Amino acid sequence: NKFNKEMRNAYWEIALLPNLNNQQKRAFIRSLYDDPSQSANLLAEAKKLNDAQA
């Protein structure tokens, strides 16, 4: 399933972002599970926040 693969990839990328705190990571990951079709958008948002907090 395409969404499962995208979701799994996004999950690990988000989990490993160095500048997000655990609460932020959990919120993004919860959103991934709520709507796997938004994986790419959620990952992009997480990366933006990660960069902003660098």
Results as ranks from 00 to 15, higher is better:
Ala40Lys: 11
Asn19Ser: 10
Asp34Tyr: 12
Asp34Pro: 02
Met7Gln: 13
Leu42Gly: 01
Asn19Tyr: 13
Phe28Tyr: 08
Leu20Phe: 01
Asn9Gly: 05
Leu32His: 01
Glu45Ala: 07
Ser31Phe: 14
Met7Asp: 02
Leu17Arg: 01
Leu42Ile: 12
Asn21Ile: 07
Leu20Cys: 01
Arg26Gln: 04
Arg26Asp: 08
Trp12Ile: 11
Ala46Lys: 00
Leu49Pro: 00
Gln38Glu: 12
Leu43Asn: 02
Tyr33Cys: 03
Ser39Gly: 12
Ser37Pro: 06
Ala10Pro: 02
Gln53Gly: 07
Ile14Asn: 00
Leu20Glu: 00
Ala27Val: 08
Lys47Gln: 08
Glu6Pro: 06
Arg8Asn: 08
Met7Ile: 12
Asn1Met: 03
Lys5Trp: 06
Leu20Ile: 10
Met7Ser: 04
Glu6His: 04
Leu17Ser: 05
Leu20Asp: 00
Ser39Arg: 15
Phe28Thr: 01
Ala15Pro: 01
Leu17Thr: 01
Glu45Ile: 15
Ala10Asn: 12
Ala54Ser: 11
Arg8Pro: 02
Asp35Trp: 09
Leu43Glu: 02
Asn50Val: 01
Ile14Ala: 00
Leu20Val: 04
Gln23Phe: 06
Leu42Ala: 07
Asn50Pro: 01
Lys47Trp: 09
Gln23Asn: 10
Gln23Glu: 15
Phe28Arg: 01
Ala40Glu: 09
Asn41Trp: 09
Lys25Pro: 00
Asn41Ala: 14
Asp51Arg: 09
Lys5Ser: 07
Leu16Glu: 07
Phe3Ser: 05
Tyr11Pro: 01
Met7Asn: 04
Asp35Glu: 12
Arg8Gln: 14
Asn41Thr: 11
Tyr33Ile: 06
Gln24Met: 05
Asn9His: 15
Leu32Ser: 01
Ile29Ala: 07
Glu6Tyr: 04
Leu17Pro: 00
Lys47Val: 06
Pro36Tyr: 06
Pro18Phe: 04
Gln53Lys: 03
Asn19Cys: 03
Gln24Trp: 02
Gln24Arg: 03
Phe28Ala: 04
Asn1Phe: 02
Lys5Arg: 04
Asn9Met: 13
Arg26Leu: 05
Lys25Val: 05
Leu16Asn: 15
Tyr33Ser: 03
Leu42Glu: 01
Leu17Asp: 01
Lys47Ala: 07
Ala27Arg: 09
Lys48Gln: 03
Glu13Val: 03
Asp35His: 14
Arg26Phe: 08
Ser31Arg: 14
Ala10Trp: 06
Glu45Tyr: 10
Ser37Val: 09
Leu32Glu: 00
Asn1Pro: 09
Leu20Tyr: 00
Met7Glu: 02
Asn41Tyr: 12
Ile29Cys: 02
Leu32Tyr: 02
Ala15Arg: 15
Ala54Trp: 12
Ala44Gln: 15
Asn9Ser: 10
Tyr11Lys: 14
Ile14Cys: 01
Phe3Pro: 15
Ala46Tyr: 03
Tyr11Asp: 01
Gln38Val: 06
Arg30Leu: 09
Glu45Asn: 10
Ala27Ser: 12
Ser37Phe: 11
Lys5Asn: 10
Phe3Asn: 13
Ala27Pro: 02
Gln53Met: 13
Ala15Lys: 15
Asn9Asp: 14
Asn21Pro: 04
Tyr11Asn: 03
Ala52Arg: 08
Leu43Met: 09
Asp51Ser: 09
Ser37Met: 14
Trp12Gly: 06
Leu20Pro: 00
Asp34Ile: 14
Gln38Met: 15
Glu13Ala: 15
Phe3Val: 09
Pro18Val: 11
Asn41Ser: 13
Asp35Gly: 05
Asp35Phe: 13
Arg8Gly: 04
Pro36Cys: 02
Arg30Gly: 07
Asn41Lys: 13
Asn9Phe: 06
Ala46Gln: 00
Asn19Gly: 08
Asp35Tyr: 05
Tyr11Phe: 06
Asn19Val: 03
Phe3Ala: 05
Lys2Tyr: 06
Leu43Trp: 03
Asn1Lys: 04
Met7Cys: 01
Phe3Trp: 08
Asn22Val: 13
Leu43Gln: 05
Leu32Lys: 00
Phe28Ile: 07
Ala54Asn: 09
Ala10Asp: 04
Asp34Phe: 15
Ala10Cys: 02
Ala10Leu: 06
Asn19Leu: 09
Lys47Leu: 09
Ile29Leu: 06
Leu49Ser: 04
Gln38Arg: 04
Asp51Met: 12
Asp35Met: 11
Asn22Leu: 14
Lys48His: 13
Lys25Ile: 08
Asn41Phe: 09
Trp12Lys: 15
Leu43Pro: 01
Trp12Tyr: 14
Leu42Cys: 02
Lys5Pro: 14
Ser37Tyr: 09
Leu43Ala: 12
Leu32Ile: 05
Asn4Val: 05
Ala10Lys: 07
Ile29Glu: 02
Lys25Met: 03
Leu17Asn: 02
Asp35Ile: 06
Leu32Thr: 03
Ile29Asp: 00
Ala52Phe: 11
Asn4Thr: 06
Ala44Cys: 02
Asn21Arg: 06
Ala52Pro: 03
Ala54Glu: 11
Asn1Ala: 04
Ala40Pro: 13
Pro36Ala: 08
Ser31His: 14
Ala10Gly: 03
Pro18Lys: 15
Ser39His: 15
Ser31Gly: 09
Glu45Thr: 05
Arg30Lys: 09
Gln23His: 11
Ile29Lys: 07
Leu17Gln: 05
Pro18Gly: 07
Arg26Trp: 04
Phe28Asn: 00
Ala52Met: 14
Leu42Asp: 01
Lys48Ser: 09
Glu13Phe: 15
Asp51Gly: 11
Ala46His: 00
Ile14Ser: 00
Gln24Glu: 10
Gln38Cys: 04
Gln24Cys: 01
Ile14Trp: 00
Asn22Phe: 15
Leu43Asp: 00
Met7Ala: 10
Ala44Leu: 15
Gln24Tyr: 02
Leu43Tyr: 04
Ser31Ala: 14
Asp34Gln: 08
Asp34His: 05
Asn19His: 11
Asn50Gln: 02
Leu17Lys: 02
Leu32Cys: 01
Ala52Cys: 02
Ser31Cys: 01
Trp12Thr: 14
Asn41Leu: 13
Asp34Thr: 09
Leu20Thr: 00
Asn21Cys: 02
Glu45His: 08
Leu16Trp: 09
Leu43Gly: 02
Glu13Ser: 08
Asp34Val: 15
Arg30Thr: 12
Tyr33Asp: 02
Ser37Asp: 09
Lys47Ile: 12
Arg8Ala: 13
Pro18Thr: 10
Phe28Lys: 01
Ile14His: 00
Lys47Ser: 06
Ala40Leu: 11
Met7Thr: 09
Asp35Pro: 01
Pro36Trp: 12
Asn22Ala: 13
Gln23Leu: 09
Lys48Cys: 02
Glu45Gly: 03
Gln23Ile: 14
Leu43Ser: 06
Tyr33Gly: 04
Pro36Arg: 04
Met7Tyr: 07
Leu49His: 06
Leu43Thr: 07
Asp35Thr: 11
Asp34Cys: 04
Asn19Arg: 06
Phe3Gln: 07
Gln24Asp: 04
Ala44Asn: 10
Asn4His: 10
Ala15Trp: 13
Asn22Ser: 15
Ala40His: 10
Gln24Lys: 02
Ala44Tyr: 11
Lys2Pro: 09
Asn19Met: 13
Ala54Lys: 03
Tyr33Glu: 04
Phe3Ile: 06
Leu20Ser: 00
Tyr11Val: 15
Arg26Ser: 09
Ala52Ser: 07
Lys2Glu: 14
Leu16His: 12
Asn1Gln: 08
Asp51Phe: 12
Lys48Glu: 13
Tyr11Thr: 13
Lys2Ala: 14
Gln53Ala: 14
Gln53Leu: 13
Asn19Thr: 05
Ala40Asp: 09
Asn21Gln: 12
Ala46Met: 01
Leu17Phe: 10
Tyr11Arg: 14
Leu42Phe: 10
Ser31Trp: 11
Asn9Ile: 11
Arg30Met: 08
Ile14Gly: 00
Leu49Ile: 11
Glu45Leu: 14
Lys25Leu: 04
Leu49Gln: 07
Phe28Asp: 00
Pro36Phe: 10
Ser39Val: 09
Trp12Val: 12
Gln53Thr: 07
Ala15His: 15
Leu49Phe: 06
Asn50Gly: 03
Ala46Glu: 00
